[in-house]
Design a binder for these strands. Structure first.
Lengths: 236, 236
DNA sequence: CAAATAGTGTCTGTAAGACAGTATGCC
DNA sequence: GGCATACTGTCTTACAGACACTATTTG
């Protein structure tokens, strides 16, 4: 009896979402507590099954809306990878998943999910310690790496911020995702010099102490030239 | 009657392979002629259905072996993306595919596929003109882009070459995938200076004309620092 | 005033790109 | 020698990173 049957196998497919944001300088991910087996009571990435007539992108967009109330066209949604180890989900029929990365500003809070599941922002460091259901630890790790790579070459960092933000806010994004400290003066110059990355609004924002920071909004550029390099420390 | 049913849908899943190589300076992809509907007689990427007990990576490795005789651990195999548009495959049950990128040296020729399908290397430019079955045009485009990005930051270019190669061979890889011309002297210095990219074997190879080029083999480094940038022309 | 954060100026090392010039093969 | 290809040297410009310094706020 061969372990690998020659028959083509039909499977159920889910789209799982890694929705990242920055809350008070910390990288956070939206997690839900599973209400039903398998892994009932454990934390997991939000997600759901592919339905007839849908592409996986549409499934992901629908889940995003159901879990957070955000329309998918308001933020980036991109594939991270497909996870298909035969033992990744104990259910039968077999379940494979396509993971999507979404980047969101600090939201008012996922309004008590219409899906009735308890959804909440969890620091990524904490999620890694606790451990997630299924193979979601690996998915989260891959998604954070993908986000880190995108920060290098695109202006996606502004998607982590609200409509108006300071250069310090933007630097906090890079520092949280890359887990490094960046030189403030050099970062400031690089960002403000890059063509179409940020546009000054003229406003300023006071904090408790110190000189108020100038406010910016996202510029029209999508790719960031020259890239923001952190390859010296090349992990991934 | 909603277009999107609320029922979770079971689907069949394939792994499709984009196997790239360089033949006389031209980027080529391994294509098969389909013997059965849908798209019978049309060119398509090699691939096959996920079987019970297999991950998609294992499916891809098995198809690679069946189509080319190459063992998967001899070359890179990595996910490009999953394609799931509802109308991408007319068959029922519905079929979605996970595309993999493989990079191969110029092989002796895919030994008359054990799968009995006519497999052959086709220049990518030609494949784009002719058009492929299913959504394989989009998959091919995405895979070539992914390969181009990998060339920037990894030493994967050596995987396109045989065990021994000249710097000119290596440069041809970059020029074919990126569709640019690179400065020969600068490329030479950059590659030979990069730590662990290439190692001189001491041998030389004569061509018809001119000074024989020194031979190299792949070095131990996997990531390329500093990266080989072509971001000035940033397409993708 | 001190403390704190925002932002600018300047210097140094490294690397990219342009391209002149040298080396070494075949006819 | 002529020609083609491989390779080296050198110059210019651009950018990363370090860090001294100035600016503007609160207390």
């Amino acid at each position: 009896m061969p372990r690998v049957s020659r028959a083509r196998q039909q499977v159920a497919v889910t789209a799982d979402l890694v929705i990242l944001t920055i809350r008070s300088g910390e990288l956070c991910v939206l997690l839900v507590e599973r209400g039903v087996p398998p892994f009932a009571g454990r934390l997991a990435l939000p997600g759901g099954f592919l339905r007839g007539g849908e592409s996986l992108e549409e499934t992901a967009a629908r889940e995003l809306r159901e879990e957070t109330g955000i329309a998918a066209d308001e933020l980036h949604l991109e594939q991270v990878g497909t996870y298909s180890a035969p033992d990744r989900d104990p259910r039968d029929p077999r379940v494979i998943t396509c993971a999507f990365l979404a980047i969101a500003p600090d939201l008012p809070l996922p309004a008590a999910g219409s899906d009735a599941r308890a959804a909440s922002w969890t620091p990524v460091a904490e999620a890694r310690e606790t451990g997630l259901a299924f193979d979601h630890d690996a998915i989260l790790r891959d998604a954070v790496r993908a986000a880190g790579r995108k920060l290098q070459f695109t202006t996606i960092a502004t998607a982590f911020c609200g409509a108006e933000f300071t250069i310090g806010d933007l630097r906090a994004v890079y520092e949280a995702v890359w887990e490094v400290e960046l030189d403030k003066p050099n970062f400031h110059r690089k960002v403000t010099d890059a063509d179409g990355f940020v546009i000054p609004t003229g406003g300023r924002r006071s904090s408790a102490n110190g000189r108020p920071a100038a406010l910016y909004r996202a510029g029209p550029a999508e790719s960031l030239v020259p890239p923001m390099m952190w390859s010296r420390n090349a992990r991934s």
